[in-house]
Write a protein that binds this DNA or RNA. Sequence first.
DNA 1: GCATATAACCGCCATG
DNA 2: ACCATGGCGGTTATAT
Length: 372
Amino acid sequence: MPMGGNAVRNIVVLLFEQASILTLTGVLEPFGLVGEVDKPDASDAYAIWLVSRHGGQVGTLIGHSIDTLPIDDIDTLSIDTLMISGGFGTQQAIHDETLIDWVARRAPGIRRICTLGTGVWIAAEAGLLEDRRVVVHWRLIEDFTRRYPAIRSEASSLFLRDGPIWSSPGLAGAIDLSLALIEEDLGRGCALLLARLLVVYMKRPAGQPQLSAALCSQAEGSDRFDTLHTWILANLHRDLSVEQLAEAAHMSVRNFTRVYQASTGMTPAKAVEAMRLEAACGALQDTDARISEIAQSHGFGDEERMRRAFLRSFGLGPTAWRHQRRRELATEAEAAPGRWAIRGPKPDSLLRLKPFRQRAQALLQAEDRPLP
DNA sequence: GCATATAACCGCCATG
DNA sequence: ACCATGGCGGTTATAT
């Protein structure tokens, strides 16, 4: 296995007992799929290393174990990106001085350090976050700020980068964060393709007008409607009339519209429409669902209403928007260095995961079932 | 593209 | 007096 060649970027995932398996897969899937993307060198772009304090089997949140290397075994490995797992186990792990020392000692030589969920506690404990901005899960942010008042924590975004430090508040955010890392390394075309393979939405580029960006930035100043906004985003298909929103916010309609406008700069109905439009755009871009289905599932009720909303905001109907967007993405991917396409399965592209694959194979053979 | 119905928006004023 | 709130009615925007 390559240990420090300039072509291969070593991604090290730090695990511990009671780590979240979702953060692990959120990293492994995107990075693992890079090997399936057809571009010279892409399959050798990354090597993934799973490590833990003592190595060997590490129990995850759901009980299944993961095979890991001891941290001492990668002393000579040049680490490109360190991913610190989340999970309940962090509460024990932050008291493991050897582990924290290891993180603190290796950190200066690492290009990117990512914390996934409660992994921020470990990075914070290792002193890597002094005066940095990080995202913390909304339910834990109070605890976090109490323990680390010097660290600028927030709860708003899916992931956040501050210099070499990348953080993600939720476990599933590991996928989004990983895609962002890959975008940085291999370009947007590759990341977009992976996002489509994984059937997740890809964050829009910063240059492009992002409707929710307006909402988010406004919400930073006053988080008064944060919970309402997350509720709206999770319930786009439901009745989101101003009356309903006011009720959800425990306010009268009159007062709700007034306060909402004062703190977000948008009227409630416009904001809802913006969120619906943006979500619908994501679906148009990333899926082949019928317009009527997208309209239904995003709260437009029927195709006609969505069409008119699109015409108002974009000057294009949904189908035209989809075609245009797809063309944009295609040319963007074309312009990216190399061309990105999916190729057939390549058995040894998973070579780097061999220890783990062998382990899986052993388990399956024990049950006398072939590995697909 | 029209007419009509409904919802959103907003100024104004009363209330606590 | 101040301020946040909530109800009323008219105007505008959107839906049917």
